[in-house]
């Protein structure tokens, strides 16, 4: 299993549903080839630094995934025939990049766990204190508005 980083540029004229579909198709293929998507981001519509196939803008998708090396070929084949994609780049991550990635993933998990945990705590506080907490909040927010 190797770690890969993948940037895909989609047609910026595509609507959100089309982008969802494209993203799903890519993640499905990765998972079908025994890969695992670790991170995916949408950078959104960006101006390209230079014109590609008469496109001035593109919708950037960013994936980080773990997969056997055999998964790359079919993925590239898909991009070549997949109409919304007009540029892509797949990069194998080196040791140091993998270490940095793992630590960032751990940090993300910790953050998610933290976000989940305080919710439970605040719920308990709200239940126990209830009325005492609620009135003080609108008063504070109202002052700066005046």
């Amino acid at each position: 299993m190797n770690y890969y980083e993948n940037i895909v540029i989609l047609d910026a004229a595509l609507e959100d549903t089309g982008i969802d579909a494209a993203e799903k198709r890519i993640t499905d293929l990765i998972e079908k080839m025994q890969g695992e998507v670790l991170k995916h981001e949408r950078w959104g519509r960006r101006k390209l630094s230079y014109e590609i196939n008469k496109h001035e803008k593109g919708y950037y998708l960013f994936f980080v995934f773990k997969s056997p090396p055999t998964a790359i070929k079919p993925l590239e084949e898909l991009y070549k025939v997949f109409d919304p994609v007009f540029k892509f780049m797949i990069i194998k991550l080196r040791k140091k990049e993998v270490i940095a990635l793992q630590s960032s993933l751990q940090a993300m998990e910790a953050k998610a766990a933290e976000q989940a945990a305080p919710d439970v705590v605040t719920d308990v506080v709200k239940d126990s204190v209830g009325e005492a907490v609620v009135p003080s909040v609108p008063a504070e927010t109202a002052e700066p508005a005046e």
């Binding site: 540029i9 630094s49 230079y50 780049m89």
Partner: peptide
């Protein structure tokens, strides 16, 4: 070179 390839930077 990677940034240029994916149009984050320009060649010229």
């Amino acid at each position: 070179k990677r940034a240029r390839n994916i149009a984050l930077l320009s060649f010229m």
